[in-house]
Nucleic acid binder design. Structure first.
Length: 714
DNA sequence: CGGAACCGGGTTTTT
DNA sequence: CCCGGTTCCG
């Protein structure tokens, strides 16, 4: 092997071995920060470079689009455009692509829609109702959970026993699941689980197609193997059967998705599944300092179900890991914001190199407030997904109905948005009619309108609605799709609704719809668009601008930051009480792995903290230090006790001001958000400006009005 | 049918 | 505390 090649240079011994072991099954146990993406991409390049296969014969699977596009980019740097033909993507997007080609064989049309959780719930609620169950006895969310779990394990309705879930839903689980699948098929729709499930069915029932793909994918690479579920496992097994060239990369210590069906056993028994599998461990860490790795290893050592491995590094520089306690959750957030402010001012690190990682979404609020207060720009990753906003979902529903009139879920969502006088009773009539005649809601509405029994307002607006959708659909043949949608949103008065409303967020919503419409021009067709958006989330745009990153620990997987804050390490919050209640030992170990993931995101600075009191559900509760902190040896970190440091405690009523973008503009002249100092009052922050008078919030004494002359910028 | 006023229940993590 | 769902009234 010629290791003068650029893509091989700089690899350590095990990395090089992993890259150049071309034939046969290979498992790479890659600890956090050990350069696995580098190995994966070099491996692909090596295969192509040595003519083992054409790019189109390589399949590389990841879990997130972000990971996929990063891998694609890195490979393209070496191999250039040829990579267009390579199959790099998420399990779901690759499975979806395959199904577009063969949907007919399974009784779907190739333009099937992919539905999200929202639609799943909507559909399940209907079914539960139609079965005559009370929503309280058979909660839609729980039923959804069970159905998803079946799909994760590649279990079809016919293979479910009626008492598989104990006595849930009067032993009707099988029928409920069956009905759910039937209705989806009627809508020509699939949920996430179906994408994999239908692939497996396709391969099992059509040998020719199975062979086609087995031959096509000569080399397979799988990232984050510890997160695969049984369906994904089977899919990989089937595809790799012929060539046996499958390379899986993973880290059992980073398995944090058991709750959505991931089977850690997949990675633990890889060498039994694949005969003569080679196993290579990557243990040299290039990311973090020894202090940080030490904390991570000590913590994860408390888990019993794991392959032992020990990460090491040559980076012996850096500060100790800090463990800090605070009076309450607000103070914790304020102090961290202060610290971030200081780091930036001292030019110790730029904002985009800083991350605050929390256990659950609700915890981000305090940090938004405190960062706003100091005028520090931040971004929250994962929370407000563009496609999760009500108005965007409405817009998408219009598009769905526009190209597929049978999409009952979309129909139900928007039939009365904006309000057009179609209430529950009218909707009930439509549903009734649709059932009687075995037709879609849309067709039933058409029928209802044509019967014209009553000349009510509802009938008129329904007629208009039907008309608009149908004419728009015809227009698609000769008019640009973006134009058609734009017009439809006008005709149906959807845009008008937000134009009229004079709430603050109506403007945002209006803008979002406009942006949605605009983005359509980036797609060949509306079908392309729909296919894309369901499979993509916004973690892709971990943008480059200079902001603090706030996100959940789950969302942080695969990322790294110079400085990381891990707040809220309290019993019940982290480890989360839910996860322990659910599944005592397994739950706790998964929480510990999550902690391991979170810790190993940090390159240089790591601060873990907890609050002695926390607002929960609106009241104030004492909290207990997380067991995870207690599991760390005392000499492995520096303890900072801030509980009795009263600066924040006394001034619990900070006014909250929104000045997120103001910082750079007003910075120079004691602008809002500026940190200032006064000879007697000490440090403070400018709240508002009026002429040469500033209203300043001082940490020690609260709000005061001061002339600019007496202030100095800190 | 739509809006306002009220009540009760829930906060884990997501392709 | 925030939301979604329900109820009651015009």
């Amino acid at each position: 092997m010629d290791d003068t090649k650029e893509y091989l240079s700089g690899l350590n011994e095990s990395q090089l071995e992993a890259v150049t072991h071309v034939e046969g099954p290979l498992l790479i146990l890659a600890g956090a920060g050990t350069g696995k993406t580098r190995v994966l991409t070099s491996r692909i390049i090596n295969i192509v470079d040595n003519a083992h296969a054409f790019p189109s014969q390589i399949l590389a699977v990841t879990f997130t689009n972000k990971a996929a596009s990063e891998m694609r980019q890195r490979v393209e740097k070496y191999l250039g455009d040829v990579m267009g033909s390579m199959n790099i993507g998420t399990f779901h997007s690759i499975a979806a692509k395959i199904l577009r080609k063969h949907a007919e064989l399974l009784g779907y049309k190739s333009d099937y829609t992919i539905i999200n959780q929202d639609d799943q719930i909507r559909l399940i609620k209907q079914i539960v109702k139609d079965f005559g169950f009370d929503e309280k006895d058979v909660p839609a969310k729980l039923l959804l959970y069970y159905i998803n779990r079946f799909k994760d394990r590649a279990i079809l309705p016919e293979n479910v026993a009626s008492n598989d879930i104990g006595h849930f839903a009067n032993n009707k689980i099988k029928q409920l699941y069956h009905e759910y699948q039937d209705r989806l098929k009627n809508f020509n729709a699939m949920d996430f689980g179906d994408l994999l499930l239908n692939n497996i069915t396709l391969f099992n029932t059509h040998l020719d197609i199975c062979l086609l793909y087995q031959n096509k994918f000569k080399y397979m690479l799988v990232d984050e193997y510890q997160d695969t579920n049984i369906a994904q496992y089977m899919w990989l097994r089937i595809l790799s059967q012929n060539n046996n060239n499958i390379c899986c990369v993973g880290d059992d210590d980073q398995s944090i998705y058991a709750w959505r069906g991931a089977e850690i056993s997949n990675i633990l028994r890889f060498d039994k599944d694949y005969k003569d599998a080679k196993v290579i461990r990557l243990e040299r860490n290039y990311r973090s300092t020894q202090h940080i790795l030490n904390i991570a290893s000590k913590l994860i050592a408390n888990n019993t179900m794991r392959h032992f491995k020990e990460l090491w590094t040559e980076r012996t520089d850096g500060d100790m890991v800090k463990v800090v306690n605070y009076y309450d959750d607000k103070e914790e957030a304020r102090a961290i914001a202060d610290e971030i402010d200081m780091l930036e001012r001292m030019k110790k690190c730029s904002l985009s190199d800083i991350a605050v990682l929390v256990r659950a979404g609700y915890q981000t609020r305090n940090f938004e407030e405190s960062l706003n207060f100091l005028g520090i720009p931040y971004r929250i990753i994962g929370s407000t997904k563009f496609y999760d906003r009500t108005e965007v979902k409405d817009g998408v529903a219009y598009i769905r109905l526009l190209i597929n009139h049978d999409d009952n879920l979309a129909f139900e969502r928007i039939i009365n948005v904006p309000k057009r006088g179609v209430g529950p009773s009218t909707l009930q009539n439509i549903i009734q009619l649709s059932k009687e005649n075995g037709i879609s809601y849309f067709a039933a509405t058409k029928m209802l309108v044509q019967q014209k029994k009553s000349k009510s307002k509802a009938m008129d607006s329904l007629a208009d609605f039907i008309n608009h959708i149908e004419t728009s659909n015809h227009q698609l043949k000769h008019t640009e799709h973006r134009k058609v949608v734009e017009e439809l949103m006008e005709k149906t008065s959807y845009l008008e609704m937000y134009r009229k409303e004079d709430k603050e967020d109506a403007k945002d919503r209006f803008g979002n719809i406009k942006e949605l419409v605009r983005s359509l021009e980036e797609y060949e067709s509306l079908n392309d668009f729909l296919q894309y958006i369901t499979l993509v989330n916004d973690a892709d745009n971990v943008a480059e601008d200079n902001r603090v990153n706030i996100m959940t620990m789950h969302a942080a997987k695969g990322l790294e930051f110079d400085t990381v804050f891990l707040p809220g390490w309290e019993e019940g919050v982290f480890p989360s009480s839910k996860s322990i209640e659910e599944d005592r030992e397994n739950g706790l170990e998964e929480e510990r792995r999550l902690a391991y993931v979170a810790i190993t995101r940090a390159k240089r600075n790591l601060t873990i903290s907890y609050a002695c009191y926390r607002r929960v559900y609106g009241d104030f509760q004492a909290s207990e230090i997380s067991r995870f902190i207690n599991e760390l040896p005392k000499n492995a970190y520096q303890l900072i006790n801030n509980y009795f440091n009263n600066t924040y405690k006394q001034n619990n009523n900070h006014p909250v001001i929104k000045i997120n973008k103001a910082r750079s503009i007003e910075h120079a002249k004691f602008g809002v958000g500026e940190k200032v100092e006064h000879v007697t009052f000490g440090k403070g922050v400018v709240l508002s400006a009026d002429g040469n008078v500033r209203q300043v919030f001082f940490e020690k004494t609260g709000v005061k009005k001061i002339m600019v002359e007496f202030l100095k910028i800190v």
